[in-house]
């Protein structure tokens, strides 16, 4: 592992009460990045948001709301590249079938993946052994 690389690997129970913990870790990382020259407060909010949305997604859609399952999150920063992986152990879904929200219609739901895609450079969701991983990447400049 490179001496300037940061990797945070955490597992939390499949419950929304842990959203603030995970989001706060994202915020703290944004505030500690040595080389980042952009707006730290905005980056902190965005990391909080994408971690929150990805974890809710894992809880509600992939782990079928089973509180005994765990959500596994890995945050890696190497040079200017941020990668967040959120693993779930459920049936999964096809991220490509989730439409962009219709802004003219007032739906209660359906904005989470759109918000992640808007704030990150690339987003993928694929099968891995035992489950799925939502991978989100962003170049930090």
């Amino acid at each position: 592992m490179d001496k300037n690389e940061i990797e945070v690997d955490i597992k939390v129970p499949n419950q929304t009460r842990y959203l603030s913990l995970i989001g706060r870790i994202g915020e703290d990382i944004a505030k500690e990045l040595v080389k980042y020259t952009g707006d730290r407060e905005t980056l902190a909010y965005h990391l909080n948001l994408v971690l929150t949305e990805a974890m809710v997604n894992a809880i509600k859609h992939a782990n079928t709301s089973d509180p005994d399952k765990m959500v596994h999150i890995v945050i890696n920063i190497c040079e200017d590249d941020l990668t967040i992986k959120v693993y779930d152990f459920g049936q999964g879904f096809d991220i490509n079938t989730i439409p962009v929200p219709n802004f003219e219609e007032l739906e209660d739901r359906g904005r989470g993946i759109y918000m992640i895609k808007s704030l990150m450079d690339s987003v993928s969701y694929r099968k891995v052994c035992d489950g799925n991983v939502l991978e989100m990447k962003k170049r930090l400049q």
Binding site: G23, T52, L106, R111, M115
Partner: peptide, 12 residues
């Protein structure tokens, strides 16, 4: 901090 669920509650 607000997420998509918070926004959704306000839309509701």
């Amino acid at each position: 901090f607000i997420d998509s669920s918070g926004l959704g509650a306000l839309v509701s």
